[in-house]
């Protein structure tokens, strides 16, 4: 099953390599990974999506917790949460496709953020599934480039991941 694991860690050189190294060292899988500093500049927030059974996910959270730079770990998928991913996608936009891309982007609440006579660049925010659906609906033929941020997530309600 797919899990979204959020990690609060010391914003120090080498901290990220410890997390990434742990995943490869222990043969855990990484689907996506995002990391950036938080409002407290001594801390970074890292979100990793991974796939594994309960035993593997338990090991992942336990092993992450063991890293000295890691302050807190939470498996967001265990409770209600919101996940978002940002995608920018560049299309070849000629002829009929030009209007079709615009219409589909509107349906998905995407925005066109760059235009040339032959291209559109669409920005889309949502769950990974929604981004996948957008790509599927337009097919591969007109896609020139896709860039995705990887998933970020946050718990619903009053639950927070903080020190």
């Amino acid at each position: 099953m797919r899990h979204i694991i959020s990690v609060l860690m010391e914003n120090e050189p080498g901290a990220l390599s410890r997390v990434v190294g742990l995943f490869s060292q222990r043969n855990f899988n990484i689907e996506s990974l995002t990391v950036a500093p938080t409002e407290d500049e001594t801390l970074s927030r890292l979100t990793v999506t991974t796939i594994g059974d309960d035993r593997v996910i338990e090991q992942i959270t336990k092993q992450l917790n063991k890293l000295i730079d890691v302050v807190k770990v939470v498996d967001l998928s265990e409770g209600d949460h919101i996940e978002r991913e940002l995608m920018m996608i560049k299309f070849k936009a000629n002829g009929q496709m030009r209007a079709e891309i615009k219409r589909t982007a509107d349906i998905f609440r995407g925005q066109i953020i760059d235009i040339t006579p032959n291209t559109y660049t669409v920005q889309l925010v949502g769950s990974s599934e929604k981004l996948d659906a957008f790509i599927t609906s337009l097919g591969n033929t007109c896609i020139m480039e896709v860039v995705r941020s990887g998933v970020s997530g946050i718990s619903r309600g009053e639950k927070v991941l903080a020190v």
Partner: peptide, 14 residues
């Protein structure tokens, strides 16, 4: 050495 030792230490410092 930080990179080389990372998987075989409890922690390392530079």
């Amino acid at each position: 050495m930080l990179g080389i030792s990372r998987p075989i230490v409890k922690h390392n410092f530079s």
